[in-house]
Amino acid sequence: MASPPQTTTASAATSSSAAMLSRDQLLRLFKRFDFLTSQPDVKKRIADAVNDKQNALFIEKCVFIVLVQEAVAVTTAIQEEILLEMGIDPRFGIACLGKVNMVYENDRDLMIQFYKFVSKEELACDEAELAPNEFAEKMHAQHKLQEQQLEMLKHIRKFHPDDQSAILEALRQQLEGANFDNSAAVLTSDKIQEVVRRRITPFIRAT
């Protein structure tokens, strides 16, 4: 019998402030979550959790179906299961997800994967909660958004690495301000140029 995996905890780090999942661990988590939430049985698991929490309220002869938001609880449980597979304390791992923006804000590629991870979780929940036609509309909008994001990334790569970092920081702030709503995951060309100008202007004034 294989011995149980050793778990990673905050106390295992040299200091509590430095305790964080590594880049490779995060990427493994994102990739595994993307795979699992694409599987029919996992989709059914999320949908069943939502359906099991339906409650009918009778108010003035009208029936209102209240869907308790169980989808997020299930996707979080899936993330915890993945972390256990990786030999990581789930509580520690989930806490680390809340610090990705702060710890890895200058890692452009990782932040892109993180935003995709957040988007994937939202879509998994939407698929469980929305009617098929509503979800189809959501997916169409999502594909359009992804095309815009791709064009944005192509545009960003034309800039100096320091400018790219400033642009991604502006994107992070925009996402946080919108509570990570997917619609906020795009910067227009004008906004990108504005970010670059703001970064350059202090140097011009100093010369």
Rank of each mutant, 00 (worst) to 15 (best):
M1C: 05
M1L: 08
M1E: 07
A2L: 09
A2P: 12
A2D: 07
S3E: 06
P4E: 00
P5W: 00
P5Q: 05
A10R: 05
A10V: 11
S11M: 06
A13W: 13
A13Y: 13
S16T: 04
A19L: 05
M20A: 08
L21R: 07
R23I: 07
Q25E: 11
L26N: 03
L26M: 07
L26R: 06
R28C: 07
L29W: 04
L29E: 03
F30C: 05
K31G: 04
R32E: 10
F35M: 07
L36V: 10
T37R: 03
P40W: 02
P40T: 04
D41S: 06
V42H: 00
K43E: 09
K43W: 00
K44H: 07
I46E: 01
N55H: 10
A56Q: 11
C62V: 13
C62H: 13
V63M: 10
V63T: 13
F64N: 10
I65C: 01
I65Y: 12
V66L: 12
L67Q: 14
L67A: 05
V68D: 03
V68W: 02
V68Y: 00
Q69H: 11
T75I: 11
T76S: 11
T76P: 01
E80C: 13
E81S: 14
L84V: 06
L84C: 07
M86V: 09
G87S: 09
G87A: 10
I88D: 06
D89Q: 09
P90Q: 08
P90Y: 04
R91G: 14
F92H: 04
A95Q: 11
A95I: 05
C96W: 05
L97N: 14
L97P: 14
N101W: 01
N106T: 15
R108H: 09
D109T: 14
L110Q: 06
M111C: 06
M111I: 15
M111G: 01
M111S: 03
M111T: 02
I112T: 15
Q113V: 10
Q113G: 08
Y115S: 08
K116W: 12
K120Q: 14
K120L: 04
E121D: 15
E122S: 08
L123D: 15
L123Q: 13
A124D: 12
C125N: 12
D126K: 14
E127Q: 15
E127P: 04
L130C: 07
A131G: 02
A131D: 12
E134K: 11
E134A: 14
F135L: 03
H143S: 12
L145Y: 05
Q146R: 12
Q148A: 15
Q149V: 01
Q149I: 06
L150A: 13
E151H: 14
E151Q: 15
I156S: 07
R157Q: 15
K158C: 11
K158S: 15
K158F: 09
H160A: 07
D162Q: 15
D163F: 13
A166F: 11
I167A: 01
I167N: 01
L168G: 00
R172I: 07
R172H: 14
Q173C: 12
Q174L: 05
L175S: 05
G177P: 03
A178R: 06
D190L: 08
I192Q: 00
Q193G: 05
E194R: 03
V195S: 00
V195H: 00
V196C: 00
V196D: 00
R199M: 08
T201P: 02
F203V: 13
I204N: 01
A206R: 10
